[in-house]
Amino acid sequence: MNEEQIQHYGDALYDAWRECRTIAPLLEQEPEITLADAYRIQLRYIERRVAAGETIVGKKIGVTSKPVQDFLGVFQPDFGQLTSGMVYQEGDVIDLGTLIQPKAEAELAFVLKADLQGPGVTAMDVIRATDYVVPCFEIVDSRITDWKIRIQDTVADNASCGVYVLGKTKGDPRKLDITLAGMVLEKNGELHSTGVGAAVQGSPANAVAWLANTLGELGIPFKAGEVILSGSQSALVPVVDGDELVCTVGGLGSCRVKFSGRSAV
C-alpha cells in the first residue's frame, strides 16, 4: 500500500476510536492488505494519538494462544502500543462509555527495569530485565464492526487494544513460577474460568522475548520502565454496566476491576 492509503486507514481508525464507533473490516475495503501494511497503519493511528497528547508507555502482545491463532489462521502473536490514555489504576471504575464493544482478558504484565534490544533476546534475558510482574486486565476493544477481524484488521487496529488495569501486588519473576502460576478469573463473585501462564506461548516470558525480537528487527528497543502485557491467560469476557471482575495469579495476587456505563455497541 502507498503512504496515502496507509494514512487514510490509520486516520479512519483514529477517528473511529475518538468517536467511539466502528468501521468496516479493512480487508473488505482492501483485500490485498499485508501484515506489514497493517503495522504501518497501526503506527499512523498511534502517531495521531501521540500528536493529540498521549505518550507511549509500553506494548501489548496479542494472539498468543493456540485457539486464537487457529481462529485467525496465523502462527505467531501480534503486538500493539500502550499509551498513557489507556491506563487505569486498580480500584478505578472503567467507564464503558469510552469503549465500543469491550471484552476483558486476564494477563500477567511485565514492568522492565532495563532496556531490552532484540534480536537474540531469550526468555532468560526477559527475566533479567524485569523489575516486577503484576496481574492485570486488558480490556480489548475493536474499532472493526462486530469484531469481524482477520489478522490484518486487528494489527492495524493496534492489536484491538482498549484500556488496561494493573494490579497492585508486585511479584519477582525470580521467585514466582510464571509458567505454572494458575490464573483464576471471577465475574461478579462467581468462578468464570481458569488458566495458567503456559497458555501464553508456553510461558509469558517467551511471548515477551518474541516481541523484543520482533521489535528488534525493526530497530525498536524495549525501554526501562515500559509495561508489557504478555497475552491473555483467560477466556474473553464481555462486560456490561455493574460488572466486577477479579483475576488472581497463583502465588502472586489479584487485580480487581469494575465497570460502569454503556459501551457504544
Binding site: L180, M183, V196, A198, G250
Partner: peptide
C-alpha cells in the same frame, strides 16, 4: 499453599 490458584499443564 493456596490450593485455589495452583496452575496445571
Amino acid at each position: 499453599l493456596d490450593l485455589r490458584t495452583l496452575g496445571v499443564v
